[in-house]
Simulated scan of single mutants.
Amino acid sequence: MIDFRYHLVSLASVLIALAVGIVLGAGPLKEDIGNTLTTQVTQLRGEKDALRADLDAATKVSTARDQFEAELLSRMVAGELASKRVALVVLPGAETTVVDQVSAALKDSGADLAEPIVVNKSWVEGAEDKVAARTEVGNALLEDASLPPVGEDGGQSVDSVLAAALTGKVSASALRDPLTTSARRALFDGLVEADLITDSDAVGKPVDGVVVIAGTVDETGDAGVAQTKSRLALAATVDRTSEGAVLTEDTTKVADQALSPLAVARDQKALSKGLSTVDAPHLAMGQVDVVLALAEQFDGGEGHYGVRADATAALPGLGR
């Protein structure tokens, strides 16, 4: 058994140490500790002020750059798509802000801009009954318009229906007469009735080119990958049917690149042969890229533009 005197000695030692600490803290060490703490606080305040100044300067530069680019945007694209009829195809999840910004850039370019085609989520749903229903609708509409069935590399039948409704053709080099306005209207109406697209006044004249704006894929795993490839297949189909097409997407919103149609298009060239892509459409530079990339498509070229590492260049050549 431990003697009670041991406890008294231990307690006394603790009290003595505490007393010594108090005496030193209030005496000889007080000034040193206070000065050290004051110096550290002053240093931290200085660092905070410096970081704040750096942030303010960076924000000012970024704001000035954005204003500069916005002012130049209309001048850089002016006349690039004059006399060309262009349609926007807006995929599920695309941000309204991006759609508005790209639309404004296309109008600044002189393009005759058709009413946007908004694709509903039902277009890409992967359940077997959904796929079967889309296939049935697409095949019936193609047959009613006396259009050939989808080939092995043609994606979904509804992709070909939308492409034909927009361009009036089954391919960019089609030999047959283009579809009449009423025939194209019937294709649009069939897609609307099947709840695959929202109704729009996009018929008008057939379009020359198409800009496809991709959005967030809300599935993961195999289902998400299938949705991603389905969206890319639609862009590739309208590219084959029109004189040119550009796929654009704000990939900064995508964590998994396997769920980005644009990233997959750049990685798997066989799925996007002939299609141009533009990342960063939320930036003025990206909006310029969309216009110039589409103009390049009309001239027979293609490329992948923007700020990502997999872009072939930041900007399509201006000396076309």
Rank of each mutant, 00 (worst) to 15 (best):
G34H: 03
A50D: 11
S146A: 15
F68K: 14
G46H: 11
G138D: 10
A127E: 11
A132E: 03
V98Q: 10
L141I: 08
D32I: 12
I33K: 05
E143H: 09
I117Y: 01
R134K: 12
T36K: 04
T38R: 14
L37H: 03
V23K: 05
V90L: 07
K60Y: 12
L37C: 06
A140C: 03
V61F: 06
V137C: 07
L106A: 03
V41R: 14
A50H: 01
K48H: 11
A78V: 10
S83I: 01
A57Q: 07
P28H: 09
G110P: 03
T39A: 15
L44P: 02
L37F: 12
E115T: 13
A127G: 02
V102P: 00
A78L: 03
A105F: 08
A82H: 07
D100W: 03
V86N: 03
V99C: 05
L147R: 01
I22E: 09
A145Q: 11
L55W: 03
G34W: 04
T38E: 13
R52T: 05
G79W: 08
R85D: 09
L141E: 05
V86P: 04
G93K: 07
G126N: 09
E128R: 02
L51P: 01
T39E: 13
L113C: 07
E69N: 13
E95N: 11
G138W: 08
E125L: 11
G138E: 06
V119N: 00
T63L: 15
A58P: 00
L88P: 02
L37M: 06
V99Q: 06
E115F: 12
Q43W: 05
S146V: 14
D108H: 08
L72I: 04
S62R: 12
I22G: 11
D100V: 08
K30Y: 14
E71M: 05
A104S: 13
R85K: 09
V23W: 15
V99N: 02
A58W: 05
R45I: 05
S122N: 07
G25E: 06
E71C: 14
V102R: 07
E80P: 04
G27D: 10
T42V: 12
Q43R: 15
D108Q: 13
S103N: 03
V77H: 02
A70S: 14
T135Q: 10
R85Q: 07
A145K: 10
G79D: 10
G34C: 07
V98H: 10
A114Q: 01
S83H: 06
T96H: 09
T36A: 10
K84G: 02
A104N: 12
E128P: 09
R134I: 09
A140E: 15
R85S: 11
S146T: 08
N35C: 01
V86A: 06
F68A: 15
A58D: 12
R65P: 06
